[in-house]
Amino acid sequence: MKAKIYASLAVVITGAVLLYAVTDFPNFGDPHSPANAGVKGGAPSASIYYIENTYRDTKVPNLVTAVLADYRGYDTMFETVVILTAGMAIFAILRVLRRDEDTEEAAPVDRSIDGDHHRIIVGITCRIAVPLIQIFALYVVAHGHHSPGGGFQGGVMLGASFILIALSGSLSDALARLGESSFIRLACIGIFIYAGFGFLPLLVDRNFLDYGALAGLLMTDGEEMARSHSMLGVEIGVAMTVMAVMFAIFANLSTRGRLQGGL
């Protein structure tokens, strides 16, 4: 009961603060608000700069990816950290590391789908679909700066493919392919890849996440191509983190943190 009162208080106070912040918003249709900047009679705008100069600066045709991964890369890096934090919170709340005798080795899962008419249709279809999903996910990651897509979308598709393995077969099938130590490591390595691309320019006295400084390291023609390639690099990091955290959340939620049995 007390917990409920404290929780309600926290919700009410947070809501009141958010409502108070609403008064700082610009009026609806205000030509001088940042969202409307750049239109006729409006304020000068960053979006106009992105639209006119992104291709010249970065050689990336997809403006959205360029803004996300380069111009506002700092923001995106911590978005990825938020995802990692969500995974760590799930781990901290749900994961049961204590070995209970009754749940230990509850039932050895039969991995064979032969002769099981309840599972054979779904199992075979998923065996066909999962590799295609994963290849398409890799395409979405690798092509993120030329077409719609990117690290978050590709990572979600990769994570969903492992969830599909777990749903069609058993969770132990999926864990045999992406075990617990693997997905925790992958989630952290993804962040390290992103942050590494941020830190490398610091070594040559440039700003954090200023990918242009990597032109020599990546052996590109100019700073523009270095920015393009670095965007691919950070997208790969984002995809690794998102994939690992997606699957970690599913595995922990579906088994109440025991990573055994499950759906």
């Binding site: 309840h118 249709i121 779904v122 279809t125």
Partner: peptide, 20 residues
């Protein structure tokens, strides 16, 4: 091709779930 593969499969899985 993908709809041809996956749509009947999901129907089968749903009917199976209802039966069980």
């Amino acid at each position: 091709v993908f709809i041809y593969l996956t749509s009947p499969t999901s129907t089968s899985a749903l009917a199976d779930a209802g039966w069980e």
